[in-house]
């Protein structure tokens, strides 16, 4: 933002949105990291903390939307300002969803806590979560810097997450076929893996929104897609 508005209050309204989005991003990041840690260590207390934190994100999204609507009504924003406000609404929605997915993972910790997770699977899940978290962290940095080039890089990296998710999917199927007692924990883990993969998608959404906010143009071209699980079956193993 090169210059300031004639109405200084308008600047403050826009700054409020930016600040709240950054806050939401920080909380969402922490929730996802905690949920995976709780899963791997079967830490019920930590899972409970994640579940209770989701309400903070829900509130923040509501407040951001209300502020955005009031600002649109009052200021009738144009051009970059309009894109900024519309972008805030969309990013807040994405971050709220990230929080939901973290919370869902935390709930599953309770369900799987009795049976324990094979070490190797936990590794795979941790790796997937690391990548998704890196995407989330990077996209929040890009939100602060508004660099369209970096937004594009993040979008291109999403294929990696999809590929790991697909291999984890295969692995879980194998465990289930080996021993039917694995089916319950593995099904939960499958949902956890899917949730983490979705978090990567939301990071990509945010990257696309930032690109639009910065340039006024939509990112061109298909997203990289490596999630092939839709066509995988037990028979293909």
């Amino acid at each position: 933002m090169s210059s300031t508005h004639i109405y200084s209050v308008y600047d403050e309204e826009l700054k409020y949105l930016t600040r709240r989005i950054s806050e939401m991003g920080g909380i969402a990041e922490q929730m996802v990291a905690d949920s995976v840690r709780a899963l791997v260590n079967a830490d019920l207390a930590l899972a409970q903390k994640v579940i209770s934190e989701d309400a903070i994100l829900d509130d923040a999204e509501r407040q951001i939307n209300e502020k955005a609507i009031v600002t649109i009504a009052k200021r009738q924003p144009m051009a970059a300002d309009l894109r900024e406000i519309m972008g805030s609404i969309r990013i807040a929605a994405d971050l709220e969803r990230v929080g939901d997915l973290g919370k869902n993972n935390a709930k599953r910790v309770i369900a799987i806590s009795g049976s324990g997770i094979p070490r190797q699977l936990a590794r795979g899940l941790e790796h997937l979560a690391e990548l998704a978290l890196m995407q989330l962290k990077d996209v929040l940095d890009v939100y602060a810097s508004r660099s369209p080039e970096k937004a594009n890089t993040i979008r291109e990296r999403d294929g990696e997450i999809d590929a790991i998710y697909t291999s984890l999917f295969r692995e879980l199927l194998t465990y289930m076929m080996e021993d039917p007692r694995n089916i319950t924990p593995c099904t939960h883990l499958l949902f956890c893996a899917k949730n983490i993969e979705r978090i990567g998608d939301h990071a990509t959404n945010i990257a696309e929104t930032i690109y639009y906010m910065a340039t006024g143009a939509q990112i061109l071209g298909e997203r990289p897609k490596e999630d092939n699980t839709a066509s995988l079956g037990a028979a293909s193993e």
Binding site: S2, S3, T4, H5, I6, Y7, Y10, R75, P77, M78, A79, A80, D81, L82, R83, T215, G216, A217
Partner: peptide
């Protein structure tokens, strides 16, 4: 939504 000129941008956004 996305003017080309910086002066247009500043004017319509009230900057």
């Amino acid at each position: 939504t996305n003017p080309d000129d910086q002066r247009t941008q500043d004017y319509i956004m009230g900057r």
